[in-house]
């Protein structure tokens, strides 16, 4: 066991980790930030996406120790201090972009990464970007719609919510 320190959602946090402890596990079990979810063990599902030094990563593919000294952003840090959802979170609620909510943290973190580099993505670009995020509930319809709406595009011509 060694102590690992990182800045999580703007706050310095420390905890013990084994060499094999994954970042996803460290966030959930050691730091108690259970918003980051684990839906697979082969780095396919994307429920565990967080941002490390501004880059979207699947936190199950990274060891906690590799994040020593890094700045990590998770779903818990996305809303404002008073709980107000950010534009992307709000678009997911407005357009019913989630059902069971399990894939949602990864979807939000992955979509935020897309909008940072591509503020006005096409439908095809959104779908391509979500290649590493699996949702079993929504058939993706309202997720894609929500992300396009969050980018400021008019999605009213896309069929039902």
């Amino acid at each position: 066991m060694s102590q690992v320190t990182m800045t999580v959602n703007g706050k310095e946090m420390s905890g013990d980790a084994e060499g094999r402890t994954l970042l996803s596990q460290f966030l959930r079990e050691t730091l108690g930030l259970t918003g980051t979810h684990v839906g697979c063990d082969t780095s396919q599902c994307g429920a565990c996406v967080v941002h490390v030094d501004g880059v979207a990563v699947k936190s199950c593919t990274m060891l906690a120790m590799e994040a020593e000294g890094a700045s990590v952003d998770t779903i818990e840090g996305q809303a404002a201090q008073d709980g107000t959802l950010n534009a992307l979170q709000q678009a997911f609620q407005d357009h019913h972009g989630l059902q069971c909510g399990f894939c949602t943290p990864g979807m939000i973190m992955s979509a935020a990464d897309l909008l940072k580099s591509n503020p006005n993505p096409t439908e095809a670009e959104v779908r391509h970007h979500l290649e590493g995020n699996i949702c079993r509930c929504t058939g993706y319809h309202n997720i894609v719609k929500a992300i396009m709406a969050a980018s400021g595009q008019d999605v009213s011509s896309i069929a039902a919510e």
């Binding site: 996305q78 709980g83 959802l85 997911f92 943290p105």
Partner: peptide
């Protein structure tokens, strides 16, 4: 949705 979107489910 509020709790699911903010990681507090």
């Amino acid at each position: 949705d509020v709790r699911f979107l903010s990681g507090t489910g």
